[in-house]
Write a protein that binds this DNA or RNA. Structure first.
Length: 821
RNA sequence: GCCCUGGUGGUGGAAUCGGUAGACACGUCGGACUUAAAAUCCGGUGAGGCUAAUAACUUCGUGCCAGUUCAAGUCUGGCCCAGGGCACCA
């Protein structure tokens, strides 16, 4: 029996216990059904769930339930991205053990996730910080290492003082650390990199294959990879025989306008290029440049500085002798680290030339050229010998070709993307499985010796170095090759390495022989629907794509892209601004569960905005959803004795009132199904729930007119339609109505196209495009009849009086427009 | 500067193909029920004009300006604003 009023807390508790024991969403790897892989970005176990999590996991869960009802074998797993800095910090601050801290957070958050009613197969749970997972992270590192995709080099790297570790380029946002927001400086260190640049072209090209990704994410990756087509031109140094300076340029067409050359302060040949007279000034300039942080370098954007080296290059096109300068507007790690300067046709060169009184030569002519201003537009070449008169684009080709033919140039494609720096000077991560042997040098740990376990005998209270270095046991080992005494690499891997392949482990999470079974991974992947935050557009989503391609080339899998469809959900705001602890406008999911139940939380978080847009959390909105749930429930508790699970009626024998109820139900099925299939518009789905509920209330207004077979059909259909969202209430009602199965295992309702429309429609009658009358007519009348009805309208008559009808447009079931002059 | 996304009532938002702009809610106003309140149920609610307040009628209205069309929130061109990304990238 259903109680008169609904008590979500009581009912949700009951079903949670049952589901906890049964794991009803256990997914078999073998099935006759087609597969569907629904994936949420796995959470970092920070301590408590926040509303962003609730939104993310609710969206994926509803998709998973919908697909399950449509007959798919749905994989909907969950795991923990559980290595990472906050655990290290917690350990340092409270002298706690990062593992204990992390695992206790996981256990609390797992409980919160379960309370949300997710249809997750918990038997496939993956925890990246446990040895049975990071063993395979290390193993995959070794595969990339063997393939030459992991390498160590000394380079100026991004350093965050507060986090006491290096950062990947993707983790530096506006010159600041992505995690703690403090300033990033450069440090020269020997570090491990993954050769993501090897895949620059493919990562860029395959964006086109990702039809199920939003343009925003694709453009961000496109910009980040930053492909540019240009030329390398080489310049002989006048003073030093045999020394050449290559430059990268996208404006080879302006080669005749070069008046000086600029090299970056870190340029490799800079010492050779500096004459004794200029040495002091150059040294001074370089050491100043070194001190600048990324932010300062950005802030000096408009005031360009530099000093001459005293040497010159000869422009091979013109024979002109041009001075070489050092200036920090040239970047050492882009192109060749040297830039040819054409002041009239490049803004930066123009500013610099003006400041230091360097000569300018105009080589492009076009409308609006002003000798006092920079001219970056395209035009026709002048002062360029045999290339005069050419268009810029054609000139680029011909000039580069000419340089090529004469041995001082070539075409060159350049990318902005840099290799992925993966070493971290932190404890709580997967140790890098490499040892250093005095005889053999850098040696990979033998695969059979994996995992390289994190040491536990460490001191977290030390400052200024990684706690891992305090372990008396970890450092020393023997060389896998020669058996000599060797030392381990003391760094751990960036957590983004762990999260680059977790979605692969879900297909085979308990496999202790291999990281995943090849047949299983080819069967389940790519992920059919991935859901997560936009903040990972160039971090996780780029790394995961790289990993997939790299593992494919290691022969571990046979697909090119990991995520077929991507839904990036918007942020959860509170009263118009981002939820944050400092603002004190956070909402605790526990409070919502306690006061309204998880169904209300799920319903509300889907209701007010489409998934991709930001969502504003309001207390009034939550209450509105709670009231709606109670309103729905009351219908079932009122009519529970009348509801027939095996309802039966013949549509032809129904009266109009009953037929309309049936039609409204079919319309709801159709619209809800379409709304979910079309971009997951859950906000309109929920509107349809309300519309159908309202129309059932309307139908039951007069008790004497109710056909209980029809009512049963409508109520049972509504229940199934609402079940992916209000999972507990739907289950409770269906069970109490006497159904044997769980409603979550029932199939999705089907609609009849003929019944999924109203029996009567409102015909809009326009005269000259303005609405003049609205007439209720039977559906599906033919055009001639509609035209006749329209012309008979007295209001229409008024407007066409004394005019001639030029044309009549009829849109079936909708509108007639009479054009009269 | 370049790129992406968006701009619709007091608010969140809706509107397959170009075809009733504002679905469904929130808020608000009113009514029923109640001794009263809460809850619930029912109804009004884009702006202006005309009316006596209503009904009826009518004009305007989807960031701005043009255009295409019988018909534009939707298509085309130009602009403005907001959010996000990239940026001394040669």
């Amino acid at each position: 029996m259903l109680e008169k009023e609904y008590y979500p807390q009581k009912i949700e508790k009951k079903w949670l216990e049952i589901w906890d024991n049964e794991n009803p969403y256990k997914t078999p790897n073998e099935s006759d059904k087609p597969k569907f892989y629904a994936l949420s970005m796995l959470p970092y176990p920070s301590g408590k769930l926040h509303m962003g999590h609730v939104r993310n996991y609710t969206i994926t869960d509803v998709i998973a339930r919908f697909k399950r009802a449509q007959g798919y074998n749905v994989l909907h797993p969950m795991g923990w991205d559980s290595f990472g800095l906050p655990a290290d910090n917690a350990a340092t601050q409270h002298n706690a053990d990062p593992k204990t801290w992390t695992l206790s957070n996981i256990s609390y958050m797992k409980k919160q996730l379960k309370m949300l009613g997710l249809s997750v197969d918990w038997d496939r749970e993956v925890t990246t910080c446990l040895p049975d997972y990071y063993k395979w992270t290390q193993w995959l590192f070794l595969q990339l290492y063997k393939k030459g995709l992991a390498y160590k080099k000394t380079a100026p790297v991004n350093w965050c003082e507060k986090c006491a570790t290096v950062l990947a380029n993707e983790q530096v946002i506006d010159g600041k650390c992505w995690r703690c927001d403090s300033e990033v400086t450069k440090k020269n260190l020997s570090q491990w990199f993954f050769k993501i640049t090897e895949y620059s072209d493919e990562l860029l090209k395959d964006l086109d294959l990702l039809k199920g990704w939003g343009d925003n994410v694709k453009t961000m990756q496109y910009n980040w990879i930053g492909k540019s087509q240009g030329s390398i031109l080489k310049f002989k140094v006048k003073e030093i025989d045999g020394l050449e300076i290559p430059v990268y340029t996208t404006r080879a067409d302006t080669a005749y306008g070069i008046t000086y050359l600029v090299v970056a302060p870190e340029y490799k040949d800079i010492d050779k290029l500096t004459t004794p007279e200029n040495k002091a000034a150059v040294e001074q300039y370089r050491s100043n440049a070194k001190k600048l942080s990324e932010i300062e370098r950005l802030s000096t954007q408009r005031i360009k500085t530099g000093v001459p080296l005293g040497t010159h290059i000869i422009n091979p096109f013109t024979g002109r002798v041009c001075p070489i300068w050092v200036a920090d507007y040239a970047l050492v790690d882009y192109g060749t680290g040297a830039v040819m300067a054409v002041p009239y046709h490049d803004e930066r060169d123009f500013d610099f030339a003006k400041k230091y009184n360097l000569p300018m030569i105009q080589v492009i002519d076009g409308e609006g050229f002003d000798p006092n201003k920079v001219y970056v537009e395209k035009g026709k070449l002048i002062n360029s010998a045999q290339f005069d008169g050419l268009d810029c684009e054609e000139a680029k080709k011909q000039i580069t070709q000419y340089a090529h033919d004469n041995g001082f140039g070539e075409f060159k494609t350049q990318f902005r993307l840099r290799d992925w720096l993966i070493s971290r000077q932190r404890y709580w991560g997967a140790p890098i499985p490499i040892v250093y042997c005095p005889n053999c040098g850098e040696v990979a740990v033998d695969e059979k010796d994996l995992p390289v376990l994190l040491p536990t005998d460490v001191d977290f209270s030390v400052k200024g170095k990684s706690p891992i270095e305090t372990s008396p046991t970890f450092r020393y080992t023997t060389c896998p090759k020669c058996g000599a005494k060797a030392v381990r690499d003391m760094d751990t891997m960036d957590t983004f390495v762990c999260s680059s392949w977790y979605y692969m482990r879900y297909v085979d999470p308990k496999n202790d022989k291999e990281c995943f079974n090849r047949d299983l991974i080819n069967k389940w992947l790519p992920v059919d629907q991935y859901v997560g935050g936009i903040e990972h557009a160039v971090l996780h989503l780029l790394y995961a794509r790289f990993f997939t391609k790299a593992l494919r080339d290691c022969g571990l899998l046979d697909f090119d892209e990991p995520f077929k469809n991507l839904l990036t959900q918007g942020m959860v705001l509170k009263d118009g601004s981002k939820m944050s602890k400092s603002k004190g406008n956070t909402v605790d999911p526990d409070d919502i569960y306690r006061n309204f139940g998880a169904d209300t939380a799920r319903l509300f978080i889907l209701s007010d905005s489409p998934p991709a847009r930001d969502f504003d959390w309001t207390d009034a909105g939550v209450e509105g959803c709670y009231k709606f749930i109670l309103r729905v429930y009351r219908l079932y508790s009122k009519y529970q004795d009348k509801i027939n699970l095996n309802y039966n009626f013949e549509i032809d024998k129904l009266n109009k009132n009953d037929e309309d109820m049936v039609r409204n139900t079919h319309i709801a099925i159709k619209k809800i199904t379409n709304d979910i299939e079309n971009e997951f518009q859950f906000n309109t789905v929920i509107s349809r729930y309300r519309e159908l509920t309202n129309s059932i209330y309307e139908y039951t207004k007069d008790e004497n007119k109710i056909n209980y077979e029809v009512l049963s059909f409508s109520l049972l259909t509504l229940l199934k339609l609402i079940s992916p969202v209000c999972v507990f209430m739907a289950q409770e009602i269906y069970c109490e109505l006497g159904a044997k199965n769980s409603i979550h295992l029932e199939s999705w309702p089907k609609y009849d196209e003929k019944l999924a429309q109203n029996s009567a429609v409102t015909l809009v009658v326009q005269v000259n495009g303005k609405v003049r009358d609205k007439i209720d007519v039977e559906a599906n009348l033919d055009n001639l009849e509609l035209e006749k009805i329209a012309k008979n309208s007295s209001k229409v008559q008024e407007f066409i009086q004394g005019k001639t009808i030029v044309k009549t447009i009829v849109v079936p079931n909708k509108l007639v427009n009479i054009v009269a002059k």
